[in-house]
Design a protein around this nucleic acid. Structure first.
Length: 588
RNA sequence: CGGGGCGUAGCUCAGCCUGGCUAGAGCGCUACGUUCGGGACGUAGAGGUCGCACGUUCGAAUCGUGUCGCCCCGACCA
């Protein structure tokens, strides 16, 4: 391919609005172009990288025994009504209406395909002999993001690989789950992106076991708990908190409770600002509705209640924050002034054990515009049930080995979970077993945000000049760069090298533009081609320069040898990313 | 959905507060010349309904109202 024949609109300046490296460089390298908030066109270079990721995903899925199909982006809304997901997705679901001869059909742009695949399978699978079955597709998904951001990392339209497995028994589901998990590890390794599988909540999609695949990155939107000691890793939403003895210091002096007026202070921050205290000195009291009965949940001011944990602790299916009226009834005060001391109505009090070690803390007074200070548990109120009801924070211990945990930000790129029979039940996907009995199909579900692999890679692999692509995802593996486009001998050599590289199965691009060398070098670095072959003065001696993007030094290679040598090196690199990882390890 | 910011050339931005002759700069683009190993220089050009609508005014990029779009923080959410 010749540079002059494709479209690579590189930019010297950062377009307005781009703030994180992947977004900035993908725009500047001319890989993507914004069409509207949360929607990007992939320009030729971006599309090539995305295709490379897609091909790796496809290859590993096929190797794992999954079978590709292609479903629709458009589906009747009625399909999602059968699983109650029109309501569950809410505003995330993009809806439209088809009008045909005056008849209207409500449709949705599919945000995921459990419904569609289950419906298809229920139609065509009816015997245990047809199972297990693993089907997947690579398709555009549509989810209305309330707030799209970070370029291609969070969009309302994105490329996803979604696989669904169908089983007669849990053993078979577990075996496929394991296969998918392993396939995912291979995919991310081949792509050259750093990844971390973590335990995860399965979320509204349901199921009981789940792992997310994360790319650790400063700009990631997920928080991951990681134990450097035993490598326990989990999404904060899921992470258990290691047991610890919580007790008040023996020498603690308990002061007398006092009520202070705190006008206008109904959030933790406001209370802290008003009383000049740290959130760690405050106990947050949240009133939840559990089976229509109010429950008070207590956590330290700097912690967040985790509703899934609360559900598990209380053994109930649903908890939700109480509405204003209930809060006023229970506490006798408007929202923002609830506290465990002297609640108006007798409610169960559930608490995070961390509060056991707090001394003279602050709580709401159950009275408008007032808080109590110097409150102490057991003296001033009692807790009915202690348990893990909050998200993990720094300072907590690993639930496995008991050592202190660390926290990382991460980008979620993959998610595997066991669905069970949630969708097969709702959509009547059943089969006859060997005894002729009707059984419900057991399902698993496995997704990869393919566009996020690209952005996540750019996010974790770049320098001041631009992106540093691993060979596996680079839009072109080699950029052949004649220093002087008007030099016929150089151009002839360049064309020959590109032709030889292409014949050897290497993706090469010839920068045939009549630009000054500096411009070409800057562009090559910005885009991040793994190898640049520079054809300049050394051609007189029959040599060209070969420079890997992540090395600062170039080496001279004979013109006749270069295509063959590079083809071999790249073949190796595609499989191992060895040079790429080695360069990263050396601090590049 | 709450809070904040911004819409002027393909891109980055100045001008707006304090309304006034023909709306500017840099980059990019076209032509010619000089250059040619890390984003060259000169000369001459092309390119704008100042987001849109309504209003105030003799006169609006500039003031007011509305509206649309984009970005950031938060809430929400895969």
């Amino acid at each position: 391919m010749k540079w002059s024949q494709t479209l690579i609109p590189t930019m010297k300046e950062t377009p307005n609005g781009a703030e994180i490296p992947s977004h900035i460089f993908m725009l500047r390298a001319g890989m993507i172009s914004q069409v509207m908030a949360g929607a990007y066109a992939y320009l030729p270079l971006g599309w090539r990288s995305l295709q490379k990721a897609i091909n790796i995903v496809r290859d590993e899925m096929n190797k794992s025994g999954a079978v590709e199909l292609f479903m629709t982006a458009l589906a009747p809304q009625s399909l999602y009504e059968q699983t109650n997901r029109v309501e569950a997705f809410g505003n995330v679901l993009i809806k439209s209406t088809l009008v045909r001869g005056g008849a209207k059909t409500p449709v949705v742009f599919c945000p995921t395909h459990e419904e569609e695949i289950t419906s298809i399978v229920s139609q065509y699978v009816s015997s245990y002999r047809q199972l297990p079955l693993v089907l997947y597709q690579i398709q555009t998904k549509f989810r209305n993001e309330e707030r799209p951001k970070f370029g291609v990392l969070r969009t309302s339209e994105f490329t996803m690989k979604d696989a669904y497995s169908f089983h007669t028994d849990l053993e078979s589901l577990n075996a496929t789950y394991r296969k998918m998990y392993d396939a995912y590890c291979k995919i991310f390794t081949r792509c050259g992106v750093p990844y971390l599988p973590v335990e995860a909540e399965s979320g509204p999609i349901g199921g009981d076991a789940s792992h997310e695949f994360m790319i650790p990155s400063e700009n990631g939107e997920d928080d991951v708990v990681y134990c450097p000691e035993c490598h326990y890793a989990a999404n904060v939403e899921k992470a258990e908190i290691g047991e610890k003895e919580y007790a008040r210091p023996a020498d603690a002096v308990l002061k007398d409770v006092a009520e202070l007026a705190t006008p206008g202070a109904h959030t933790i921050d406001q209370v802290c600002a008003f009383l000049k205290a740290k959130p760690k000195k405050v106990v947050k009291t949240l009133i939840y509705c559990v089976d229509d009965a109010p429950v008070a949940v207590l956590v330290r001011g700097d912690c967040d209640v985790n509703e899934n944990k609360l559900k598990r602790l209380l053994g109930v299916a649903k908890v939700e924050l109480a509405d204003e009226k209930t809060i006023e009834r229970v506490t006798g005060a408007p929202v923002g002034f609830a506290g465990p001391v002297g609640l108006k109505e007798k409610v169960k009090i559930v608490a995070d054990p961390t509060i056991k070690e707090m001394v003279n803390f602050i709580v709401g007074a159950n009275k408008a515009e007032a808080h109590l200070v110097n409150v102490n548990v057991d003296r001033d109120f009692t807790v009915d049930l202690y348990g893990d009801v909050r998200n993990a924070i720094l300072g907590d211990l690993c639930p496995r080995c008991g050592k202190p945990i660390t926290m990382k930000n991460a980008i979620e790129v993959g998610h595997v979970f066991k669905l069970g029979t949630k969708y097969s039940e709702a959509l009547n996907a059943k089969y006859l077993d060997e005894n002729g009995a009707l059984q419900t199909i057991i399902m698993g579900c496995y997704g990869i945000g393919v566009s996020r692999i690209i952005a996540g890679c750019a996010e974790t692999s770049h320098d001041d000049s631009g992106i540093i692509w691993p060979v596996a995802l680079a839009p072109y593996e080699v950029c052949v760069c004649p220093v002087k486009a008007t030099d016929e001998a150089a151009m002839a050599a360049a064309e020959k090298i590109v032709a030889d590289l292409e014949a050897a199965g290497v993706d090469a691009i010839l920068d045939d533009r009549d630009e000054r060398p500096g411009v070409k070098f800057k562009d090559a670095d910005l885009v991040g081609f793994p190898v640049r072959v520079t054809i300049g003065k050394s051609l007189a001696d029959g040599n060209v320069e070969v420079k890997w993007r992540w090395d600062s030094e170039a080496t001279l290679v004979a013109v006749d040898e270069v295509a063959k040598t590079l083809a071999a090196q790249l073949e190796d690199e595609r499989k191992t990313n060895a040079r790429f990882y080695a360069a990263k390890k050396n601090g590049k």
